[in-house]
């Protein structure tokens, strides 16, 4: 479980990235942080990942301070740009996580690559992989030590629409098996709707939580051939667009 209580983050120069933010994410829940640029969603994710500290307020991850959760290997993070070592193959990049974190019950890297449809590319270097493949390896790196919490910062943000849609479906099926708690930062309403249990709408200057929307279970199946799903998603999209300034929604 993740708890964010009255958290503010001020940067030098007077920028208020986050202002008294409250948020709770239950175990096994998938929550998306959605909002325009500058609303503090990536800052919030960095606080959860222990990469930054809050100026005030309390952040706990599984009842621990984020840095302690990191020490225990409870957190996996995947950023928008694949964080891979260019001189290591796909397999070696996944193994890198296990060279640092020693956790019982970790996935076997080869098995994970097979599940991710990358078995044939295990010995390929990152520059030999397509953008979509690199992102899958990136997520495998974040998942391999079986962390309780997965933090994803626009993991498909740099991809074209088709690849993005296909990878969103793929991620949904992967996470259905692992059952992790996930916090996803995204600009994409579709991505948030089809993946999340709840969507946290944020607004900028200063970054605050504007509202929290619960996504109907039917929408999360992502079955776009089902009229009921399309209707639910459309209705939810209307709510989201109404809540956010039109020019800021991707």
């Amino acid at each position: 479980m993740i708890t964010v209580s009255q958290v503010s983050k001020h940067f030098s120069g007077g920028t208020v990235a986050l202002d008294t933010v409250d948020l709770t994410v239950a175990q096994g829940e998938f929550v998306s942080l959605l909002g325009p640029s500058g609303c503090g969603k990536s800052t919030l994710l960095r606080l959860l990942a222990g990469l930054d500290t809050a100026s005030s307020g309390i952040v706990t991850v599984g009842g621990l301070a984020p840095i302690e959760a990191c020490r225990r290997g409870a957190i996996g993070v995947a950023f928008q740009r694949p964080a891979l070592v260019p001189s290591r193959t796909a397999l070696e990049n996944i193994q890198l996580t296990l060279e640092i974190v020693h956790r019982p019950g970790s996935f076997a890297p080869e098995e994970l690559l097979r599940q991710f449809g990358l078995a044939a590319f295990r010995n390929h270097y990152p520059h030999q992989l397509s953008g979509g493949m690199q992102l899958r390896v990136n997520i495998a790196c974040a998942l391999v030590h079986r962390p309780e919490i997965l933090l994803l910062d626009e993991p498909f943000g740099a991809l074209d629409e088709m690849t993005r849609e296909s990878l969103t479906g793929w991620l949904r099926s992967v996470l259905a098996e692992t059952g992790q708690t996930v916090v996803l930062v995204t600009h994409s309403v579709e991505e948030a709707v089809t993946l999340s249990h709840r969507i946290v709408l944020m607004r900028p200057h200063p970054g605050r939580v504007q509202s929290i929307v619960t996504v109907p279970a039917a929408a999360r199946t992502g079955d776009w051939t089902n009229p009921a799903v399309v209707s639910e998603v459309t209705s939810l999209r209307r709510q989201l667009h109404a809540a956010l300034p039109a020019e800021t929604v991707a």
């Binding site: 990942a49 990469l51 990191c70 993070v77 950023f79 964080a83 070592v85 060279e99 640092i100 974040a142």
Partner: peptide, 22 residues
């Protein structure tokens, strides 16, 4: 890559591990 360093920090890598592996 600062993203790679961040990834390693979230795994609680030591400075030596960040140096030698990234």
């Amino acid at each position: 890559d600062p993203g790679l360093v961040d990834r390693m920090r979230t795994l609680h890598a030591t400075r030596w591990q960040i140096f030698s592996k990234a």
